[in-house]
Write a protein that binds this DNA or RNA. Structure first.
Lengths: 271, 271
DNA sequence: CTCGATTTGGAATATATTTTCTATTCTGCT
DNA sequence: AGCAGAATAGAAAATATATTCCAAATCGAG
């Protein structure tokens, strides 16, 4: 029985559930009710668990799935699992293919990056914890001066934040390694260090963080994932995970977070 | 080996991950990194899927689970499934909720920027003409050397492209105004100028474009809308219209285009 | 360069889970 | 009450998934 006709979106699923629920025999109705009240569990449970929760036999639950239009429980579960992860079917490999074939027209490449950017943004929203963000904003707003460091791939982000702060009259200083000048003595008590670094993490940035910490300077870190070496230090960490293409990532999500952070700090200061 | 000693909370899990990540061989580190960036998937994926995502064999992923202190993948998964209960991060609903309810909080601000970024990306794809893009890629790929200029708000984009080109062994030079040095004589016949500018357009950039054109240098421009002053010159123009929120724009779309352009040039060159 | 130790990939095995099948129990009707 | 039809429970078969094992490859020290 290869019914392709099952609901393909959560919304459609809910509609079908409603439509069907009325005309269901006892046990199957139990299933319907349990499912309606526990949609989120479908993704992470086995039929046995769902059946037990609904107070029925696994086989009954099975029939329920079929009545809903799926070939079985697995297919129904797939719907929920996919909608949970936001369905980004591993970009890394997709982009790699594109590169290998090199047949990708520039537009196709752009399309991939646009798509990657969009999912990264969605993901950003899921992974940033509001309280960390709030904390970061507070610390930066209270700073005498904000020192920004971000090298290589992170430099665009650092420079954009410096620009934004400047525009909002927030005292900020962009540390760079132009001419191998080392400005670390500019950091004074009451200041805050905003460190931005992504794999591969630049040693200079990490060193600066270490030096700052040793002197009791607060550190706010913008980094990728939690394996970042910055995690070792007691910094307020905001982590962004961005899809990348070999050594490149579009930075969409990172910049988005950066600008939101800047503006939040700017507005809070001027209160 | 029935170690009951695995992490029992997500926090403990993250700590252990950090602790362990450093001293891990290649494949296992891939696992650690993938897991760090996709914690949410553990609950709804199979080992096979996780392994593929991390780019390793299932058995390697298995060993990773054991190193993390679990008896196997299932036990690790259990941790995530249990802590999964309720409130999954459905993007759309969460966004709406935040916008309405948490007005003024940093998270709400972030939500606005994320939304702005997403629509910008969508627009980007509509407004970029494939042939202009193609042309730009070709011209840049044929260049002896690419000179990049972008100041103020455009500087992050310029610097990122410089970084990307550098990584791909494409001869490129970032023109900046550090120390008021003027490098315009570095531009030689056969080179191409890549100018990036957005309203308010910096005079320096426009001047440089003018000077280049006068000497017969090809110019590729990245700008906003079609009213940009760069339009006057015979440049290949790629225009991005970025949705902005307040006085700032997240640059998501611009950077996306920038990176796509860079990678396209990089791959075409190496053919 | 060689040896020993560690790490890896892939197939083989064990386990868990889904799905189907059938005897049995309900339900509604005459 | 007795019958026909649908619904159900439970067990058995099929499938998918996790886990282990071992030979081959890789790495590092001497």
């Amino acid at each position: 029985m290869s019914e392709g006709g099952g609901p393909t979106t959560i919304k459609a699923f809910e509609e079908r559930l409603l439509e069907v629920a009325e005309r269901l025999p006892k046990r199957l109705r139990q299933c319907a009710e349990y499912v309606a009240a526990n949609k989120d569990r479908i993704a992470v449970s086995t039929v046995a668990e769902m059946a037990e929760g609904a107070g029925v036999q696994p086989s009954a639950f099975m029939r329920f799935c079929q009545i809903m239009g799926f070939s079985g429980f697995s297919e129904m579960q797939k719907l929920f699992r996919e909608s949970f992860v936001g369905g980004w079917p591993d970009y890394t490999t997709r982009l790699q293919h594109l590169r290998e074939k090199a047949e990708g027209s520039p537009s196709a490449l752009l399309a991939e990056f646009v798509e990657a950017g969009r999912t990264s943004l969605e993901n950003l929203f899921k992974t940033i914890e509001p309280q960390s963000l709030e904390q970061a904003v507070q610390v930066l707003a209270d700073a005498q001066m904000i020192h920004i460091i971000g090298l290589r791939r992170s430099f665009p982000v650092a420079s954009y934040m410096a620009y934004a702060f400047e525009k909002m009259d927030v005292p900020a200083m962009l540390h760079s390694t132009v001419g191998r000048l080392d400005n670390r003595n500019a950091i004074r008590s009451g200041d805050v260090l905003l460190a931005i670094t992504f794999s591969p993490y630049s040693a200079e940035t990490i060193e600066l963080v270490e030096a700052a910490q040793a002197r009791g300077i607060q550190v706010v870190a913008l980094t990728d994932t939690i394996v970042s070496p910055l995690r070792k230090y007691e910094a307020i960490t905001l982590s962004v995970s961005e899809v990348d293409f070999g050594a490149f990532r579009s930075l969409s999500a990172t910049l988005c977070l950066a600008i939101a952070l800047s503006v939040a700090v700017g507005t809070r200061r001027s209160l």
